[in-house]
Structure formats: structure tokens, C-alpha cells
Design a protein around this nucleic acid. Structure first.
Length: 114
DNA sequence: GCGTTGACCCAAA
DNA sequence: ATTTGGGCCAACG
């Protein structure tokens, strides 16, 4: 993964508003990355500056090792976990768009669509 | 090059 | 609701 792509990933994550969340796969899909693992990998080594707590797994559960801290941080900005799980339907920010439905909201991230 | 190892994802059982 | 299995892909030894 080149630096350029890494920067785009960081941009997207940094843009997630407080109180909203996104799945690793959402971000990967948004940028056209081949695998959601890449997002997790990036955060693992270089996520300290980013709002990493707003990124969770697709099922609404936090990353295994960071579960406590992540849920605590989310809670402090209004994202309530129920039984250790976040309701993605309510808090999800970015959505993966496999096939852009007509003139969709492509202006959300004009600089990232290439 | 090959085998492991992950802040992953999804369909099926 | 969980577990299993397959697919994914870069980094490391």
C-alpha cells in the first residue's frame, strides 16, 4: 500500500464526524481498496493521531483487543453500545456503494473519487 | 518463495 | 446467536 493511498485512508477516517461510526469495509469500499484488512492494518501501525475509535467491524462490534477503550470513547460522544455492540443502522456514517445509484452523493468526497 | 499472522467480511450451517 | 470455512492482502521470518 503506497503512501498516497494511506493518506486517503487517513483522510476519510479523520473526516468521520463525532457521534458517527464506519466499518473498516466501508472505508475500504469508499476508496476502492481490495481488502478491508488494509484499513485495520493501517490503524494498527499508524492510527494514534486518528479517531480510530469511530471505526468498527461490520457487525457493530469493536476491535477485540481495544474493546473497552473504544466503547468508552464512543460512549463519551453519544454512541451507545448495547451488549457490547453498536447499532450500525443508526450510527453508520459512510456506506459502501458498489454501484452508484444514479447521481448519488458523489460530492461527499469529491477529492477522493478520482 | 512459502507459512503465519492479523484493528476484516460474508455466506452457510 | 455462534461457529466454520473460504476469501482477502500486506508485512515478516
Amino acid at each position: 500500500m503506497d503512501e498516497r493511498t494511506a493518506d486517503r485512508v487517513r483522510e476519510v477516517i479523520a473526516a468521520i464526524p463525532p457521534g458517527r461510526v464506519a466499518a473498516y469495509g466501508d472505508i475500504a469500499g469508499l476508496l476502492g481498496l481490495p481488502s478491508a484488512r488494509m484499513v485495520g492494518r493501517l490503524l494498527a501501525e499508524d492510527g494514534h493521531d486518528l479517531p480510530w475509535h469511530r471505526v468498527l467491524r461490520a457487525d457493530g462490534r469493536p476491535a477485540h483487543h481495544l474493546a473497552q477503550e473504544q466503547l468508552a470513547r464512543l460512549l463519551s460522544e453519544g454512541v451507545i453500545a448495547e451488549d457490547g455492540r453498536i447499532d450500525m443502522r443508526r450510527y453508520r456514517w459512510a456506506e459502501l456503494v458498489p454501484e452508484p445509484p444514479a447521481a448519488a452523493q458523489t460530492d461527499l468526497f469529491p477529492t477522493l473519487t478520482d
